[in-house]
Design a protein around this nucleic acid. Structure first.
Length: 798
DNA sequence: CAGTGAGCGAGCTTCCGCTTGACTT
């Protein structure tokens, strides 16, 4: 039996470390926290100094039993959980639950999984830091008290099954605040003037520094420019440089993967988890931009060998964020020699991103020459400005360029033609186009994470789960929105003549953005009204300061909790007893036909509109209609609400059966003969004619008839069908893509089985696959790469 | 894949952070 037992948090980490240490060491993982507050409301003894009662979580019982046994047999137990608040607490819980003897227990820490770091840690053990543990207890107890006292207030005053918490409630508030900011935004427009010159056969654009508020002013300016002469009055060439971004943290990885690859934050995290488990990248839940000495050296070697010495710029980054706990390295490839990897497409793409970001962070700055050309206009004080850039040395740009959240026109990195001071320029045309101001952008999952990180709310391990929670609770909806058209005016001066044109542009279209729901707004308003402190964006930051004081021994944890809890609990009791039920009812006006009042409110099945008063004796019952997705109680107008009552609408009769138009969960549809036919976006549900509806019904019949391409005698569950994106294979509930190299109608049953196997979903998902799989897996495994042998080997081998 | 929208008031819900696996013939 091994003399030493080392306990870390993550199994993948355990595997790596075991390789660094000799056979005298057994390395095991405890899978994070092994113990937590007991489940119910009684876990914290509020009257008795907030004494917490802990329980081993059900899913940890087995691992705890195993660790108990191993720790009894070991001579020394090394607690090697992360060096931060939570990690320290994990070590403490382990020592309590395993009943470890102080004499044979050592606490060690390291920030990176490299051999020198581990060896050094083993040589410098310490004891468990009780102050740090207390800081964690304070954090845990505070979160439980806040969450479990606020949520019941919501059940009572708003709606059942709702939740509130230090992190989630503020995350929702960010989205609600942003939505209101957008709704109250005052869009203005101004005319932007751009002159296009012809310089030696090349076009050069120059922009007027100021914009004109009205069309008349823009018109007047263009008139004054008619017949004017244009000269280069000043020419400036300035050197500039671009610096690479630091390597990824969890938050920046989520942002870039969202912008460059379009992944949601939980997708990104689960792909990263796979990469980590396969030993390809370092730990993916981190707030540190630090790279190990070893990594910096390896990057330098790789860069020098691949790009040359002058591309190398070893660099140590430091974290600016106050709330960072830096228990890990930044996210980087384990080996810089692994330029490409085996894996799924998603794994390859995410790895590529991580790889390039990390290597670029160790590369030279890019050298740029920026040219500013000022163009004067004869007889006018105004000047035009043309800017251009020439890349003198690419440096890190050879591999990676960070993207930004800002949408819209990027005018950079254009090259200017050769110019001389004093040179007269030939005007091709001058355009004054009307540009509208834009409100702040709605949050994406990733940009919300960025904001939360800035505010110190949440941790790398909780960003993705928190964002799922607020969507699951229905506070927030992630969706696309169609843009609307709006006209804009363009005035063009060309050949001494001014031409006016009215064009149209789309604005306000959104892709995968976060929108608040009515309930989200309702809850945010309720909490903001009664629990201002918790909803303050600075609340977490201020309690973090206190946790830091506890960690440094300047404050006693339950004293801190007491000070917070006293007033907080009074507020909870008071609100619970006296506050009015929060509802979002709004009177929109009166129905123009009946004169009855029109309301919008939240009901059991979501928000709806209502014509007429609630159940008055003898009176007619009110009429109801659900709000459509995207409509909010706060912003819906009477006209929009009245439209809701126009559906469902009988639009005609076909083959002896009524055709009804309505809007369902998946958008507008026609119901005929109890069949659904969806109405395309190009048609209007309110105006669609019976002729058009018949057309749609008939084309649906044709496409249904063509849906089946082939069915197989061998297994009638297996079919080739024609779908929205072309032919595909269907087997029971699973669908499979047909490779582009193969023709759908020529596929034989054996080909189909091949394809199903290659796509492989999970091997256990079906009996048919499982029967044939084991043999193949065994064969392919030997051929597969040395990357830690996993069950998924069959999937990866090609 | 929409017709609903109230109630005698049972017994339930809920937090944040740390880590993965996910019933089997």
């Amino acid at each position: 039996m091994a003399k030493n037992l080392v306990i870390v948090e993550s199994p993948a980490k355990a595997k790596t470390i075991e390789k660094f240490l000799g056979s005298d060491y057994t390395v095991k993982s405890c899978f994070g926290h092994i113990r937590d507050l007991a489940k119910g409301d009684e876990a914290i003894d509020v009257k008795n100094n907030f004494t917490p009662s802990y329980e081993v979580s059900d899913d940890k019982k087995a691992i705890v039993a195993e660790l108990k046994k191993l720790s009894k047999e070991a001579e020394i137990v090394w607690l090697a959980s992360d060096e931060d608040r939570e990690g320290e607490a994990i070590s403490w819980h382990l020592s309590e639950v395993l009943k470890l003897d102080d004499a044979k227990t050592r606490r060690i820490v390291f920030h990176e999984i490299t051999k020198p770091a581990i060896v050094k840690a083993i040589a410098n053990p310490r004891g468990i830091d009780r102050n740090l543990v207390d800081a964690q207890q304070a954090r845990r107890v505070l979160d439980r008290l806040v969450g479990f006292e606020l949520s019941p207030v919501l059940w009572k005053k708003v709606k059942a099954n709702l939740s509130a918490g230090r992190v989630q409630s503020v995350a929702v508030k960010l989205i609600v605040d942003r939505e209101r900011e957008i709704n109250s935004f005052n869009t203005t427009s101004a005319f932007r003037v751009i002159a296009r010159f012809n310089v030696g056969g090349k076009q050069m654009d120059a922009e007027l520094a100021k914009r004109f508020e009205t069309e008349a002013e823009a018109q007047a300016f263009l008139e004054k420019c008619t017949g004017a002469k244009f000269n280069i009055s000043n020419l400036e060439v300035k050197p500039a440089e671009k610096t690479p971004a630091p390597p990824f943290t969890t938050s920046t990885l989520q942002q870039e993967a969202s912008r460059k690859l379009g992944y949601g934050v939980s997708t990104t995290m689960s792909i990263a988890q796979k990469l980590y488990e396969n030993g390809l990248i370092t730990y993916m839940r981190t707030d540190s931009v630090n790279l190990s000495e070893l990594a910096i050296g390896a990057a330098k070697k790789h860069i020098t060998e691949t790009f040359g010495e002058r591309y190398s710029r070893p660099m140590r980054y430091t974290t600016k964020n106050d709330s960072a706990q830096e228990a890990h390295e930044a996210i980087r490839p384990t080996y810089f020699e692994n330029v490409e990897i085996d894996g799924t497409n998603q794994e390859k793409r995410l790895y590529d991103l991580i790889y390039k970001r990390a290597i670029a962070s160790q590369m030279a700055k890019a050298q740029i020459e920026r040219t500013l050309a000022t163009v004067s206009i004869s007889g006018l004080p105004e000047t035009l400005l043309a800017t251009g850039e020439v890349l003198k040395f690419d440096g890190f740009l050879k591999v990676y360029l960070e993207s930004t959240d800002e949408e819209g026109d990027d005018e950079n990195s254009k090259m200017l033609p050769p110019l001389n001071k004093g040179e007269e320029l030939l005007l091709k045309n001058m355009e004054a186009s009307q540009r509208y101001t834009r409100p702040a952008a709605r949050y994406t999952e990733a940009s919300l994470v960025k904001k939360m990180e800035e505010l110190g709310i949440g941790r790398p391990s909780t960003y993705a789960p928190t964002i799922s929670t607020i969507q699951k609770r229905g506070y927030v909806i992630k969706e696309d929105r169609e843009g609307k058209d709006r006209p804009f005016v363009v005035l063009t001066l060309e050949k001494e003549k001014i031409n006016r044109e009215e064009k149209s542009e789309k604005f306000g279209s959104e892709k995968s953005k976060l929108f608040p729901s009515d309930i989200g707004m309702l809850v945010t308003d309720f909490l903001s009204k009664h629990f201002e402190q918790i909803m303050d964006y600075g609340f977490t930051a201020s309690v973090e300061e206190e946790f830091d004081k506890i960690a440094s021994g300047q404050l006693v944890w339950n004293k801190m909790i007491e000070k917070f809890y006293g007033p907080f609990h009074i507020g909870v009791t008071k609100t619970s007893e006296t506050a009015e039920r929060q509802n979002a009812e709004r009177l929109l006006g009166n129905d123009p036909e009946s004169g009855l009042p029109v309301y919008v409110k939240v009901g059991r099945f979501g928000p709806f509109a209502q014509i007429g008063e609630n159940s008055e004796e003898g009176k007619e019952k009110p009429r109801y209609a659900s709000l459509r997705s995207g409509q909010l109680i706060e912003t819906i107008t009477l006209v929009e609400a009245m439209d809701l009552f126009k559906l469902p609408r009988v639009i005609g009769n076909f083959e002896g059966k009524d055709m009804k138009a309505a809007i369902g969960r998946f958008g507008p549809y026609i119901m005929h003969d109890s069949k659904f036919i969806s109405i395309p976006k190009t048609d209007d549900v309110f105006a669609i004619t019976s002729e058009r509806a018949i057309e749609l019904i008939e084309s649906k019949r044709i496409s249904d008839a063509n849906k089946l391409i082939k069915i197989f005698a061998e297994d009638e569950n297996v079919k080739i069908l024609n779908g929205r994106w072309g032919p595909y294979i269907s087997r029971g509930k699973d669908n499979f893509k047909i490779p582009k190299t193969q023709k759908a109608d020529e596929l034989k049953y054996s080909d189909v089985l091949e394809i199903i196997k290659a796509e492989g979903k999970s091997e256990t998902s079906s009996k048919a696959a499982n029967k044939t799989a084991p043999k193949k897996v065994a064969v392919k495994k030997t051929a597969a790469k040395k990357t830690a042998a996993k069950k998924s080997a069959a999937k990866k081998a090609k």
